[in-house]
Design a protein around this nucleic acid. Structure first.
Lengths: 221, 221
DNA sequence: CACCTTTCGTTGCAAATACAACATATATTA
DNA sequence: TAATATATGTTGTATTTGCAACGAAAGGTG
């Protein structure tokens, strides 16, 4: 286990715990470790899931075939990332996608029921792990809500303004920088890159905003 | 408090608890009750939030002014609904919108820190409340993810197919029913109703699907 | 039934967008 | 520095979409 310490330190579920604490938590919660060959499925759609997956090494795709049989990759899981945590927290815990190990992987399974129910446990880090779990879910929630608000805007201009305004609001200076390049931004907003560039150009002409690369200014009037 | 029992029974945080259990939980967690006049703010944007709000009576809007000063109502909270639970679960707990009591309201505040930290408490319902809280967050998460996948589709046809397929997959019969009327569906997909109706008409002509009112059939070939 | 209201479907048209193809600018590497 | 790769910007065109307006169908009510 010790050789996974650098990864375990990055796991959000263990934030605030030092190496010794983490070891103690792992023992206390009786985690399982499993190895998966490249191409092996960790979960198949509609499997019941009661433990959070933590990827220690390798690589995993969260994917799903649509109604007509086309494969879609929904997320790529990297070492230290959690997966299936949403279903592990639900009563109806049937997972709604496939989880595929696309490299040889090592996965740690963390039982949620055990985390919740062991209130009388003597493990002093219990509360912190629960809090971390709540934070992971809440943070994801916040991000999803933000993105949804953004994408729900009815045209490219509104989407851009909504997105940029969220940075403008938090910026102390007149300008601010965004973490996406143009293609990534277009993907995030679910629009075509060139159409988005055109709209940016128009808005610059109209004096609504200014930009150079990732640095933007948003004018109020 | 007894007169609020019918409401408290509907609160998801207390699911699985009977009346007596709920009373005991309320005592154990030392909830606060506050009344708000119509027009009074429960939270202002960037307030620090450490407790979950539960609306017992009245009505609340979750709202926000955008960068240019236009007001947007993001959600309407009704009795038995939770609010601000996401921020209460975060470390950076500054709320990102205003919470306005638009009627005379009675609100119960439920401290999250207390829920998490009181592992040694003798309250036997502790674990259940935590589990319920996790479930509330996880369920919201799942719904947001579904909606986001749907809206991220690049045109109305794809959005419709994605939405309908999720029902088709779970349906035992050849047909299935959706819970929205046309306007609600259009709002959910973030598109214009008439444009959506047109697309539905086209797809029916092309033999991709069939429908009458809320009852749909989705053909595979 | 007659009347009203709401929902659903249709269509013309203007506007917005995706797509494709290419030009320019910036960054990376030899 | 030159060569190459990557990112950004531009534009023409076909398609898609929003909007507005209206008629048909369905549902509710006296």
């Amino acid at each position: 286990m010790d050789n996974y310490m650098p990864i375990l330190n990055k796991v959000k579920l263990f934030e605030g715990l030092n190496d010794k604490d983490i070891i103690s938590v792992l023992n206390c919660f009786d985690v399982k470790i499993r190895r998966f060959k490249s191409g092996e499925y960790v979960y198949r759609i509609s499997d019941s899931v009661s433990s959070i997956g933590i990827l220690l090494s390798g690589g995993i795709y969260v994917q799903k075939e649509d109604y007509w049989g086309n494969l879609n990759i929904l997320a790529e899981i990297r070492p230290a990332d959690l997966f299936a945590e949403v279903f592990a927290c639900l009563n109806n815990n049937k997972i709604t996608y496939d989880v595929l190990s696309y490299k040889d992987s090592v996965v740690m399974f963390f039982d949620v029921g055990r985390v919740i129910s062991m209130c009388t446990s003597s493990c002093p880090f219990h509360a912190l792990v629960i809090q971390n779990l709540l934070m992971v879910l809440a943070e994801k929630n916040k991000k999803l809500t933000q993105k949804l608000s953004c994408i729900s805007q009815r045209n490219i201009r509104q989407k851009l303004l909504y997105y940029l305004a969220s940075y403008a609001e938090n910026s102390k200076r007149e300008f601010f920088e965004i973490p996406f390049n143009r293609q990534q931004l277009a993907d995030y907003l679910s629009v075509d890159r060139s159409a988005m560039c055109r709209e940016l150009g128009c808005m610059k002409k109209e004096g609504i905003l200014d930009y150079k690369k990732n640095r933007f200014v948003l004018y109020k009037n």
